[in-house]
């Protein structure tokens, strides 16, 4: 079950999206996330949907793979939906049970919020699926490079992120292994209330932390053995250079953002959602 978490993992494939400069993908993802909150009408959602589907198609990442990444955030999604459903009081009352009231506005807000969140997760996980974590950190490093002047250790932070990303699957596998080992020793991880469950996590977390520190130690040694000494004097195997397709991607993104804003707003006021 724990291995189903696909957020933050790279999905190797050969697509245009995979080949794009990571900086383009970072900036465009940011744009896309903001754009999801710039429209308030059904046509706006349509444009966003078409765009998202097109991008997923382009990326050659299987649709089911992206959906699998949603699973861990379903709880969050449900909570948001429930809150929006019951706490928004707008328009006609649809259902009223005891103190719970569902209004037309609430229903709409809930549905659209859910769609927004799903699109948000799909869009941002698509970025990590198509960008190697190293590419991602290279992109972040390069975009944040100006911060170096105010003494932000940009390279170090980027390196830490890429290592963290590399070890996510390894630590997940390890967690799985430790859980099985503890279950085999009679640990009860399923029953009891939340507090008891939390307490039963201790015999899993302690060995996990011990091993994580051990790994960190080993990795630091391995990096030093391979002459790692910070960002100074380091060259890049894959230096970032904008190519034609990167400018094209920026252009496409600009067109999409403009379309979403224009179409989203061009509809008469009264059918705006909220």
């Amino acid at each position: 079950m724990i291995r189903d978490i696909t957020i933050g993992q790279y999905y190797p494939a050969k697509s245009v999206l995979h080949r794009l400069d990571p900086r383009v993908k970072l900036v465009c993802t940011l744009c896309y996330l903001v754009s999801l909150f710039l429209f308030k009408s059904i046509p706006g959602y349509l444009v966003a949907t078409v765009f998202l589907v097109a991008i997923i198609r382009l990326s050659k990442v299987p649709f089911s793979y992206i959906m699998r990444g949603m699973r861990p955030v379903i709880m969050l999604l449900m909570i948001t939906v429930v809150f929006n459903l019951f706490l928004t009081r707008e328009g006609d009352v649809l259902v009223r049970v005891w103190i719970f009231t569902i209004t037309e506005g609430g229903l709409r807000t809930a549905v659209y919020m859910a769609i927004r969140l799903v699109y948000l997760i799909a869009g941002s996980s698509l970025m990590t699926f198509t960008t190697t974590p190293n590419g991602l950190t290279d992109g972040i490093e390069s975009l944040l490079h100006p911060l170096n002047r105010i003494r932000v250790p940009v390279h170090e932070v980027a390196m830490m992120m890429s290592i963290a990303l590399r070890f996510i699957p390894i630590l997940l596998e390890e967690t799985d292994k430790i859980m099985k080992a503890q279950i085999a020793r009679g640990a009860d991880l399923e029953s009891g209330n939340i507090i008891q469950k939390a307490r039963s996590m201790v015999p899993i977390l302690v060995p996990l932390f011990v091993s994580a520190f051990q790994r960190a130690n080993d990795l630091a040694m391995a990096m030093e053995a391979r002459c790692y000494h910070g960002g100074e004097g380091r060259t890049k195997m894959k230096p970032l250079k904008y190519k034609g397709r990167d400018y094209a991607a920026y252009f496409a993104m600009a067109v999409y953002t403009a379309a979403v804003v224009l179409i989203g707003r061009s509809v008469p006021l009264h059918i705006w959602i909220f």
């Binding site: 790279y10 190697t132 190293n134 890429s162 390894i170 790994r215 391995a222 990096m223 890049k236």
Partner: peptide
Amino acid sequence: PDNQIIGTVVEEDVGFGPENLGVET
């Protein structure tokens, strides 16, 4: 084997050493 591979793609990991040495791209 797990604790000495830094890259997330095989070729990037192999390139890690030369990058640190400042070898041309």
